[in-house]
């Protein structure tokens, strides 16, 4: 069965995805509220997998909640916590429950999260996870054993357009395409000139690229993102704009920047869609999309 999201990717539509994080605990109400809020505004909703290596409800549980609420989930799977047996078991489970889109990530290191003494797994990496799904789609498991009932997924991957140096990132991008990635969701994009030159280099590959849009909520956050998050640079004029925001208007300024960025990307036809990351600001996404004309 071809995933609904795959059909959106194949259409000429400007594809919009966003993401939600499962709760730390079993109270799924806030997550369900976010799903309901975003369901009719986006083509699919990513569900993060212990984002930032912080332990939470599993991404599969979150993706099932998205599906139960009649939205299209993109299951994020990292290689940090599961060896190849556990990854395959979860992929079989995901397919058996009707989840049909998987975003394959290496995952953050354990030490950056809240269980810093735990064991990192990384039995596979993101490229090998993409390849594993291809193997499973052929009816075999990673050891060559025959599957009684196969899987089919629309496979996605991530890329950091602002990585320094960029060339190793581009080499990995090509590996991911060869390993079967059908779409890419990028790390946050603020600098359109730099993103444009990145797109010039990856346009040769026939996969869809959704530019990452990170919603800034304060000047402090903007500075943090600029200084500390690998591969993300917030251009000086945007930092100044966040700085100049009156007290209490950090989020609305960040929303405005996000909406302008989305509109510009779309108008210039720079990419095939956007992936909106509004961490702890999910409520703002519908207004951002309105302002962007989507």
């Amino acid at each position: 069965m071809i995933s609904q999201f795959s059909r959106y990717l194949d259409s000429d539509e400007f594809v919009v995805t966003c993401e939600i994080g499962p709760p730390k605990g079993t109270n799924t109400e806030p997550m369900e509220h976010h799903i309901d809020l975003l369901r009719d505004r986006v083509h699919a909703i990513n569900v993060t997998d212990h984002q930032g290596s912080v332990m939470r409800l599993s991404s599969i549980a979150g993706a099932l909640a998205v599906k139960e609420r009649e939205a299209e989930p993109i299951l994020q799977m990292t290689c940090r916590d599961r060896n190849r047996l556990a990854l395959q078991a979860d992929l079989l489970f995901a397919h058996s429950r009707g989840l049909s889109n998987v975003l394959c990530l290496t995952g953050d290191a354990v030490v950056v999260g809240d269980h810093a003494e735990a064991k990192d797994v990384f039995d596979l990496d993101s490229v090998q996870l993409l390849e594993l799904i291809e193997t499973m789609e052929s009816g075999r498991d990673a050891a060559g054993g025959k599957l009684n009932g196969g899987v089919q997924f629309c496979r996605g991957a991530v890329v950091t357009p602002g990585a320094d140096p960029l060339e190793p990132q581009l080499i990995k991008y090509e590996m991911k395409v060869e390993a079967g990635a059908e779409f890419f969701q990028t790390q946050a994009v603020f600098d359109l000139d730099s993103f444009s030159s990145f797109m010039d280099k990856v346009r040769q590959y026939e996969v869809k690229v959704l530019a990452g849009i990170l919603v800034l909520t304060s000047y402090r956050m903007a500075r943090f993102v600029h200084n500390n998050l690998p591969g993300i640079r917030v251009p000086e004029p945007l930092l100044q704009e966040m700085k100049a925001a009156p007290k209490g208007e950090g989020l609305s300024t960040g929303m405005n920047i996000a909406a302008r960025t989305i509109a510009a990307l779309r108008e210039k036809g720079m990419c095939d869609g956007v992936h909106v990351m509004a961490i702890n600001a999910e409520e703002a996404v519908p207004d951002i999309l309105d302002a962007a004309g989507l």
């Binding site: 990384f122 990496d125 090998q128 190793p168 990995k172």
Partner: peptide
């Protein structure tokens, strides 16, 4: 740090 075999992760910076 992650013992990867297939190129850098997204955590590489400068």
């Amino acid at each position: 740090h992650k013992g990867l075999l297939n190129g850098p992760c997204g955590g590489t910076d400068g």
